Amino acid sequence: MSKLNIVLVEPEIPQNTGNIARTCALTGARLHLVGPMGFKIDDKKLKRAGLDYWHLLDISYYDSLADFFAKNDGNFFYFSTKARHIHSDISYPTENCYLVFGKETAGLPEELLLKNPESCVRIPMLNNPDARSLNLSNSVAIGVYECLRQWGYPELLVKGELHRLHW
Rank of each mutant, 00 (worst) to 15 (best):
D52C: 02
F69V: 13
P124W: 13
S80E: 06
P117Q: 03
P129W: 11
N127L: 08
I123L: 15
S91R: 09
I123R: 09
N96D: 11
Y98W: 04
Y78Q: 09
Y53V: 02
D130E: 15
A49Q: 01
L113G: 03
T94I: 00
L136D: 04
L108A: 05
K115H: 14
E95Q: 08
E95D: 11
K115P: 06
N72V: 00
D73T: 14
E95K: 14
D52S: 04
L65G: 10
L51R: 07
I123G: 08
S137N: 15
T105I: 01
K71G: 03
H55V: 07
A66R: 12
T81F: 00
H85N: 10
S80R: 13
E104V: 03
Y92L: 02
P109N: 08
D43K: 15
D63R: 11
E110S: 09
P109K: 11
Y62G: 11
D89G: 00
I90C: 00
L65P: 08
M125E: 07
H55F: 08
G50M: 07
N75Y: 10
T81D: 11
N116H: 09
N127H: 04
L99A: 05
F76Q: 08
I86T: 06
F76I: 14
L134N: 02
P117F: 00
L108K: 10
W54T: 01
E111Y: 02
K103P: 00
N135C: 04
T94F: 02
Y62A: 05
N96A: 11
R132K: 14
D52L: 03
A70G: 14
C120S: 13
K44N: 15
H55W: 00
K82H: 08
I86F: 04
A70V: 03
D52M: 01
R48T: 14
G50T: 10
G102A: 10
A70S: 15
M125S: 10
S119C: 11
R132N: 10
D73C: 01
L126D: 13
I59Q: 08
S133F: 06
T94H: 04
K71L: 12
L113S: 06
E104T: 04
D89T: 12
L108F: 11
G102Y: 03
Y78I: 05
N72S: 05
N72R: 03
G50L: 06
N127V: 04
S133R: 09
Y78K: 06
K103Q: 12
L46P: 12
E111P: 02
A66D: 15
P117W: 02
N138E: 09
G50H: 02
S91Y: 06
F69R: 14
M125Q: 14
E104W: 07
A49C: 07
A49R: 06
V100R: 07
F79N: 00
D89M: 10
G107W: 00
L51Q: 05
N116K: 09
L56G: 09
G74W: 04
A83P: 03
R122G: 10
F77P: 07
E118G: 04
E104L: 06
K47W: 12
Y61F: 15
S91M: 04
L51S: 13
S64W: 06
S133L: 07
L51A: 14
T94C: 03
I90S: 01
D58A: 12
H87M: 12
S88F: 11
L57W: 13
D67S: 15
A49T: 05
P129M: 08
